[in-house]
Every structure is written in C-alpha cells, then in structure tokens.
C-alpha cells in the first residue's frame, strides 16, 4: 500500500482540518454545553434543537446554506469582503467554519451530558469554598467531567475526518486547500483508480475502528471509575 503525493497531502490536510475544528469546537462548544446543561431558560429547547440539527439534516443542506451565506452576496460574504479577506467558500477556513457547524452536536452533547451528570452539588460546594466561577470550572468541573470532554474531542475529530457532503458543497476539491481524504477517495473512484481508492479507504476504516475501540474502551473504564466513586 503506497500513497501518492496528492494522497499524502489529503491525509495531512484532513488531520489539520480535524485538529483545528476539534480545538475550536471545544472552545465554542463548552460554553454552549455549560449553558444547556444548567439553564432553565425557555430558549433551552430551541437552542438544543439548533445544535442537534446536523444530526438529522443531509450535509448538503448545511453546505448549501453556508455556501449562500459565505458567498459574495451572502451576509457573511459581504462582511468578510468588507474586512478584506475575500470570500470563504473554497478555502481551508471556509471548510473549518462549515465543519464547526457540522460537528457541533458531537462535541456539545457529550460535554452537556457530563455536566448534567455532575449536577449542581460540586459547583455549589466549590462556591461555598470561595472558588469563583473560573476557578470552579478549571479545578472542579473540568477534572470531574473529563471523560465527557475526551469523548467530545474524539467524536468531534472523528466526525470531521469523515465528512464529505459539506466539504464538497463548500470546499470543492482543491489540492492542499480543501482536498481532504473523503473527497480524494471520490476523485480516485471517478478516475477508475481503484487501487488508490482502496488504500485510502482501508486507512479510513482502520482509523475509524481504532478511534471507536479507544472510545468504547475509555468509556468502559470511565464507567467502572464512576461506579467505584458511588
């Protein structure tokens, strides 16, 4: 099994995209998850539904609307042009933004579940011990909800690696810029290069299997720990 220069570029780009998206999603998703887990606002339902939309929508729908919004005549496109960075579709950062929407539920939901499972008590206990909100988050919530954060990171990364429809709509197929593994496989098949398609596909299967194995193994360990804590 050997990879061409273009394949290697696609693999590298995929890893770069997934890492960037995971990192940004942890930063963006955590406050959303925190809010969803603890609020009693009437907006909780609608916001949770919006976050979960990508779970049920065809990726092409998300891709289409993001393409329109980020295009030269869209609101986001107008804004990005006005600050002089051009339009985002068919660029790496366009893909990053699209992937953030697409993978959001996979990051928000595990963190939200972990914080909900934690309950108010540790947070209240920390407050009575004079720990402020940031102190409480980093020294109490984060360590106690760590399994949720790790699950979120793994799922967010893996899901971004596996996306295809959104990439095709918003990124196209530009080598080194938007040509990720899933698109590259499609490209190989279109060109009847089954051998190379096989190599990349097998790599994806191996990667996905290992990720899921790690995830389930990790969750089992987490559960045993959670039980022993009770």
């Amino acid at each position: 099994m050997s990879f061409s220069q273009a394949d290697l570029a696609a693999i590298w780009l995929t890893i770069k995209l997934a890492s960037t998206v995971t990192l940004l999603l942890l930063l963006i998703g955590t406050p959303i998850a925190w809010w969803l887990a603890r609020t009693s606002s009437k907006w909780k339902g609608p916001i949770a539904a919006i976050v979960a939309l990508p779970l049920v929508l065809p990726p092409t729908v998300i891709g289409f609307y993001l393409l329109v919004a980020m295009g030269p005549n869209g609101a986001v496109g107008q804004f990005t042009q006005s600050i002089g960075i051009g339009t985002l579709p068919f660029t790496f950062w366009g893909l990053v933004i699209a992937s953030i929407f697409y993978s959001m539920p996979f990051v928000v939901q595990p963190i939200q579940n972990a914080i909900e499972a934690l309950g108010e008590r540790p947070i209240e206990a920390a407050a009575t011990l004079r720990a402020g909100p940031w102190d409480t988050f980093f020294n109490v919530v984060l360590p106690l909800a760590k399994p949720g954060f790790i699950t979120a990171a793994i799922l967010g990364f893996a899901h971004t690696v596996g996306e295809f429809g959104v990439v095709l709509m918003i990124g196209g197929n530009i080598p080194g810029e938007t040509q990720v593994i899933s698109v590259q496989i499609y490209e190989h098949v279109e060109a009847m290069e089954y051998g190379q398609a096989h190599a990349l596909s097998a790599l994806m299967i191996a990667f996905s299997f290992i990720v899921l194995l790690a995830l389930y193994g990790f969750q089992r360990k987490g559960k045993i720990h959670a039980l022993s804590v009770k």
Partner: peptide, 27 residues
C-alpha cells in the same frame, strides 16, 4: 456565595471525588 465568609456542610458530604481527603482540605 463565593465571596461570603461561610462554611457549608451539605447533607451528603459532597467532597470532590477527584481529590484525596487531604487535597480536598487543601482546596
């Protein structure tokens, strides 16, 4: 709450499970 000079003991001990007894005290 975190600015009130209080000590609070809950019905269930509510120790931080990720810390040892001594680390809870150090907290």
């Amino acid at each position: 709450t975190y600015k009130r000079p209080i000590g609070y003991v809950f019905q269930e001990a509510s120790l931080f499970e990720h810390l040892t007894a001594d680390e809870n005290l150090t907290f």
